[in-house]
């Protein structure tokens, strides 16, 4: 009797075990902004190998994935593209205040077409008549707020705003409008030029204007996490020398001078 049903028993056992493994305490749900996708994916693989845990990453706009977590009350770790989104997450009670750790830094630059055909050398040049400029939507995208701050500091805000033709709704879109040649220049992050070296070049902004107007990619354990210990271990890994070297490999800065 037993041998007769052996195949069925084996099948049922296999299915049960795979379900149990999928839901085992060794897996994490990570909600991340699309800006850190290549680095996070590689870091997840390295972590899985080292700690025999599963990391499931969901990527999207930093705000989009935050809304998903808020509505579904799930997710172990939040890794938005900026400190701005982490502050919203703190206000909404998704992560505890001050729990976030900085994984990598984003430095604002002027993102221009490869080869800089319009010869843009400074923020002032963005006011050239006829130039098409993109600045992400302030209040909605961290890069937009950073852009406005920089233009105000350089005292060219009003002049440059006359040239602004679009306000992208996230950082990826900002890089996109430069790549599609819809604009001549945008206030972007230094990583854009590293992501798309064939299309985008970066013009740096002097330190005295830039000051502290940079951003960072933070990571924090959420209040919804059912495996906070493993989640903290994952964040420890991201900020460890090994994790940071993965981010550096993908063009991110892991220290600011």
């Amino acid at each position: 009797m037993f041998w007769k049903h052996l195949r069925l028993i084996l099948l049922v056992t296999t299915i049960a075990v795979s379900f149990a493994l999928a839901a085992s305490p060794g897996s994490l749900m990570v909600f991340a902004g699309a800006a850190s996708r290549p680095a996070l994916q590689e870091a997840a693989k390295a972590f899985e190998k080292k700690y025999h845990a599963r990391i499931h990453c969901t990527f999207g706009g930093s705000g989009t994935v935050l809304s998903q977590m808020l509505l579904t009350k799930t997710g172990d770790v939040y890794v938005p593209g900026s400190g701005f989104n982490m502050r919203i997450a703190e206000e909404k009670g998704v992560v505890k205040k001050g729990a976030a750790r900085k994984v990598a830094y984003l430095i604002p630059v002027i993102s221009v077409q490869k080869g800089n055909p319009k010869k843009i050398a400074s923020l002032k040049d963005l006011a050239q008549p006829g130039l098409k400029v993109a600045i992400a939507r302030p209040g909605a995208v961290c890069l937009g707020d950073v852009g406005v701050t920089l233009l105000r500091r350089a005292e060219v805000y009003d002049a440059v705003m006359k040239n602004v033709v679009t306000q992208p709704l996230d950082c990826g879109q900002t890089a996109g409008v430069v790549r599609m040649k819809q604009v001549d220049a945008a206030i972007g992050w230094d990583v854009f030029g590293k992501w798309y070296p064939k299309d985008i070049a970066s013009v740096s902004i002097p330190k005295d204007i830039r000051g502290s107007a940079w951003d960072y990619i933070p990571a924090a354990v959420t209040v919804y996490s059912k495996r906070p210990r493993l989640a903290r271990q994952w964040i420890d890994f991201l900020v460890s020398p090994e994790g940071k070297s993965i981010f550096r490999k993908h063009g991110y800065l892991t220290e600011v001078k």
Binding site: G63, T64, L66, S67, L70, I88, A89, A140, L169
Partner: peptide, 10 residues
């Protein structure tokens, strides 16, 4: 609507 979703303004 999308912008509100993105800002977690449910």
């Amino acid at each position: 609507i999308f912008l509100n979703w993105q800002l977690a303004r449910i």
